[in-house]
């Protein structure tokens, strides 16, 4: 079974779930965090990927 990770924005709490992707932002389900461009912004507050931590 494929395992996916979740990443949480330290600013607004938005969680990016690799399994779900973010279709509203054009990110398909299954898209790995590493495959999201570095200049991507959190859709809920505009912070960068570097402001996210992996959810344990």
């Amino acid at each position: 079974m494929v395992s996916y990770n979740r990443w949480r924005c330290n600013s607004c709490g938005y969680v990016y779930d690799e399994a779900m992707g973010d279709p509203e932002e054009g990110i398909a389900p299954g898209t790995r965090w590493a495959d999201i461009p570095e200049d991507w912004y959190c859709p809920m507050c505009g912070m960068l990927k570097s402001d996210f931590d992996m959810v344990a």
Partner: peptide, 15 residues
């Protein structure tokens, strides 16, 4: 809030 915040934020993203 979640529904509308996402739409508003689009106008105020850094880019």
């Amino acid at each position: 809030h979640t529904q509308y915040r996402r739409i508003f934020q689009k106008v105020f993203l850094p880019n």
